[in-house]
Design a protein around this nucleic acid. Structure first.
Lengths: 298, 298
DNA sequence: CGCGCCCTGTTCCATTTATTACAGAATTGC
DNA sequence: GCAATTCTGTAATAAATGGAACAGGGCGCG
């Protein structure tokens, strides 16, 4: 009883068949609860047939489904009984956990150091529809620029993702003006091409927002606002997770800054969407409907 | 549904008969768990007979015992789903710090639930240079596909980012084969076009790796490996931070899986780089040199 | 290309379960 | 102290559940 059934399941997941794995994942997704109902409920939530659930239980080492339920209940019982026993759970393997943990620490540290006034100022900047927004990223961070642009484009007009080769960037420059904003993502192995564009934009009077690592890209010298993030992880590569959370925070900020506009624009665009095939969705893990973008706060 | 069933029970305790009260108190003693088993178990635990339990349930306003169980389960479900909901309610301003904190929690939760064997299996898949890798993302998650592709392309050959409109995707399909791998990012507001491509690929025998949210995209049914992540944040949008950390973990895994190859390829590409303007760098916060990608571990 | 194996879903049955009806016990009012 | 009433447990029932046997189908191996 020392290790949680959830861990057990994760371990034995390899020896499962495809559908059994779906059952396992469904159970892990909303962990103890799904296993406490009837087999049929479990099955329909996992999108498999009832016998598969029973076979899954059997493979986990339970002679009967009721045994699994009992195990689940007792586990839940003394978990609720002593909420202090939490720490004992996950201390197993250092390898993968380290990475995630350190990424978390990075994010926490990042936001602890991030001046709130800077954030607010940037949000105000991004929310101002009279300014054209240009987003630019480097080799890897271009994905972030794209990600942020995709969101901002929904929230407001005049959002431009500066994409492609450096040669083409020049074309964007001719349209930039004093009222416009350039958001640059640049982390180490700082790219000189980004710097060149930023300097050129700065000379045109463009307001520059720089999202960078804690050692600051050289672009900082021409930037109006600088948002530094922690990027070190136990890997040859750097982690952009903190940068992404900064981006998401800004997006959330802009959304909340003018809720009327956000709601209006989002629901307008909902009309045109062709996502979300309804006949597939119904009855899977159907408890949780997709977040309604037009409805702030879930 | 706003107040807990436990409170309800305490209120209505007065209108209970003697034995019913024993049942109620037994339930409150170890709160949700006792109500999740069979009536007989409940009865014997409370020291009363089965019909008394039924009568108790009826007095609480449930037409059937199953109804009570359902109520108990759903209550437990969203209590476990958001252990942060308690704090979020009382805290006056769901300010900036919350967002980062919750993003962190998401990442932690995600990795606590991620089956390690699945991760390893996927890393092995991505490291195998005999397989062509196709990366695909949705409206917002396309950025992640791009991000991951940018890294993988450095580590190995035959990496394809499936970009552009759905119409063009078909062109990629003709090249896909039994040995290839399709990595799909799909979170809620699941996109039917992604599903269509995935199903088509699955029919060709392509191995499909799905990175999704904890409610599982419908693509899960054709996926060989599923990596679910937590995405909920206090914003109308979902957070892809955990997805990104998953991607980065995979990248780090592939890098570490064959350090020789990684080092060789990275340093080969270093030769061609034209980043990093030297005359700007010197003397800024010059203490920290940029991470040398050719040198594993910082 | 065909054979065999393993996996998955459908159908059916036996068992357990929740539920009802009934009778005995306790309790309260007179 | 007796009777009416309410409460509680026992017994029986009907439904729903878990579980088992069966058959179709997909996959890989030869």
């Amino acid at each position: 009883m020392t290790k949680s059934l959830a861990e057990d399941i994760r371990e034995k997941l390899g020896s499962c068949t495809a559908t059994e794995r779906r059952a396992a994942l469904a159970l892990l997704a909303n962990y103890p609860v799904l296993g406490l109902g009837t087999v049929a409920q479990f099955a329909s939530a996992a999108g498999v047939s009832s016998p598969t659930i029973l076979r899954f239980a059997a493979r986990m080492g339970f002679s009967t489904y009721a045994a699994l339920q009992t195990r689940l209940r007792t586990e839940l019982e003394d978990q609720l009984k002593s909420p202090l026993a939490k720490g004992a759970e996950s201390a197993a393997e250092p390898g993968v956990l380290d990475f995630a943990d350190i990424a978390c620490t990075n994010i926490s540290d990042t936001f602890r150091q991030l001046p709130r006034t800077e954030l607010e100022a940037v949000v105000a900047l991004l929310g101002d529809e009279k300014r054209t927004l240009y987003l630019l990223g480097g080799r890897f961070t271009d994905a972030l620029a794209r990600y942020m642009a995709a969101h901002l484009r929904i929230l407001r007009g005049r959002v431009v993702h500066v994409a492609g080769q450096e040669g083409n960037w020049r074309d964007y420059l001719v349209d930039m003006g004093r009222k416009d904003v350039l958001i640059v993502f640049d982390i180490r192995r700082y790219q000189s091409d980004l710097a060149r564009l930023s300097v050129a934009a700065a000379n045109l009077g463009v307001t520059i927002v720089l999202v960078t690592d804690s050692w600051l890209s050289p672009i900082a010298s021409v930037a109006t606002h600088v948002l530094p993030a922690r990027v070190s992880v136990p890997s040859p590569w750097d982690s952009s997770a903190a940068l992404m959370v900064i981006a998401e925070t800004l997006i959330a900020g802009v959304t909340a800054a003018d809720p009327e506009r956000s709601k209006r624009r989002i629901s307008m665009l909902e009309i045109y969407r062709d996502d979300d095939d309804p006949k597939r969705r119904s009855g899977r893990t159907g408890e949780v409907p997709p977040k309604d973008l037009a409805d702030p706060q879930a």
